[in-house]
Each structure stands twice: as structure tokens, then as C-alpha cells.
Design a protein around this nucleic acid. Structure first.
Lengths: 155, 155
DNA sequence: GTTGAAAACGGAGCCTA
DNA sequence: TAGGCTCCGTTTTCAAC
């Protein structure tokens, strides 16, 4: 089932990362193929999990989620039970866009997307504050976005 | 040109964030519309910049970018010139997926996606090390991903 | 690569606020 | 009467063989 990526696959992936609503036919024209092999390859790569999903990327500001915060979390105990409890609850909160278990001095790193600082205080008290086993939060906020990319440059 | 989002727009956006290769016709069926108004609304929201792009989300591990690191950066000077120089150069590096100017004790936060620790040492020395005006880097690496979401839950 | 089926596109006219 | 909708004919794309 595994297939090494050839030039055509890489061309497909680079194009789909930029605009995945492009038609298979246009992809074929770019890559000197007909639409059939393009279609097959996309389905295979989707099936393999190499392509996780096709997603519309929205402008956070224009949907009322313009404030991005990073929250460093340290937990009370590092038992499996305690860590698992935290992870399960964190994953449920829709304000938390990303949650990572980290190396080093921080236990978890959260990326939150919210409307504004007023909402942050609500979220901090009512939601983050109820996550189990937390010892300490340290928050940093994004002043301005310099680069935000989802596409890898494949070669 | 501005249009407030109604139920239909929100339905479209929620669906497109989950799978933007869905046909306009299916969207219409879900939302009790024909494909024409669906098509129009999507084009409008794209034109407004509310939809930034349609992107294939790949599995980082399967394209050789499975190691995620967060790098906190402090700069030497906070002059406009110095900050701008850093931002311009940082944005060019393809290992840097995200770069934010931050509030508080950190000046910039970088999210890097690379193959492994060997590559990190190369990137640190050859690329990050050449960014202008840096005083200090502090790096944290992701042990495991608990949640990674690009879609906002719109209501 | 070919072909039948499906979807997207674009315009005309209608309905509603 | 402007905006948004449906309807429908044409063109393009899909997907199976």
C-alpha cells in the first residue's frame, strides 16, 4: 500500500496544498497526465492518510476568533492517570485549537483562538481553570502574525 | 460587499472546513438550497477573504516533517528596523511554518516542522542562527500531539 | 483512454422584503 | 427595485471500465 512519492505525486500535493478545489483535469494539464491517473493518486494518498483532509482555511478575525494565545501548562503530577485526564478534557474545549505534550520545562502547550481579552478572562476562569491537575498557566498573546502556513514545500 | 453570516453561510463554512471537496450540490441538499446560491455564496466569501484558501492538510510524519518545535526568540533591540529585519528573514525560511510577534517576555514565537533532531541541529546553526538581531533562542519540542485543529466551530 | 453519468456554470425570469 | 432564489440549457468534470 505504501508508495514512494514520485514527481507527479509531489506536484499534486504541492498544488492541492495551495488550492485543493482545483479540478483533476487542470492538475493533469500541469503535470502532463490525464485526469484518470491524477484521480487515482489523490484517492490513494487520501486512503493512506498522507492527505489527512481537505479543509477551507478561514480568516480568524472575520469569524470572531482573531485573538491567538499560547498557554504553557504545568501539571501537578506526572502520573499517566493525571496526564490522560488533562489531555481528554483539553481536547474537548473548542477554544483550544492545538494541544501538545512537550519536552522540557513545559508539560503542555495550548494554542487558543478567541474573540478578545474579555473572552480570554471568561475562558481562563470557566474552562481552562477547570482542567484537571493543573499547577500553573503562563499565557502569551499574539500581537501580529508574520507567517502562518499549513503547506509544506515538498521536493 | 460585507454580508453578515446567516444560517446558510455558517452551514457552508462548517462543512467546507471539514471537507472542502464536497460538491456544491450536496451542500445544497444539506441546507435546502440548489447549487447556484451555494456557489455564489462560496465565491463571495472567498472574494471577501473570509475563506483564505482551500488546502489539503497532509500528515507531517508521512512527508518527512514529523518533528514539531516551538522556538521562543528574544531580539537584541526593539527598534522598528531591527524587528522588521528579523520578520522578513524569518518568513523566508520554509522550516518555519508559523511566526508570531508576541506580547510579554518573548519577542517572537516560531513553530518549526522538520524531519528529526539531526535536521534541527542543522537548521539551528545554518538557518535560525543567521536570523538578524537575535539575542537568544529557547526551544521546546512536541512529544505527542493531543489535538490539532484548523476548523472553527461556527454558530 | 473512452464513455456514460454527474456536477458546475451562467443566464433568464420570479419572488420577496 | 434590489437581492437572492429557482430553473434550465450548456459545458466541464468525474469515475468506472
Amino acid at each position: 500500500m505504501e508508495r514512494k512519492l514520485d514527481r507527479t505525486d509531489i506536484g499534486i500535493l504541492n498544488a492541492l496544498q495551495k488550492d485543493c478545489r482545483i479540478s483533476n483535469k487542470k492538475l493533469g494539464l500541469m503535470l502532463n497526465k490525464t485526469q484518470s491517473p491524477i484521480q487515482q493518486r489523490i484517492q490513494q494518498m487520501k486512503g493512506q492518510g498522507l492527505i489527512k483532509r481537505f479543509s477551507a482555511i478561514l480568516d480568524p478575525k472575520l469569524v470572531g476568533r482573531g485573538l491567538i494565545g499560547y498557554v504553557q501548562v504545568n501539571v501537578e503530577k506526572h502520573t499517566e492517570e493525571s496526564l490522560t485526564a488533562f489531555m481528554e478534557e483539553a481536547a474537548k474545549l473548542e477554544e483550544i485549537m492545538e494541544c501538545y505534550h512537550m519536552t522540557g520545562a513545559i508539560d503542555f502547550l495550548l494554542r487558543i483562538a478567541i474573540k478578545d481579552m474579555d473572552e480570554y478572562s471568561r475562558v481562563l476562569v470557566k474552562k481552562l481553570g477547570n482542567l484537571p491537575g493543573v499547577r500553573q498557566f503562563t499565557s502569551f498573546f499574539v500581537l501580529s502574525e508574520i507567517k502562518s502556513e499549513t503547506a509544506f514545500v515538498l521536493k
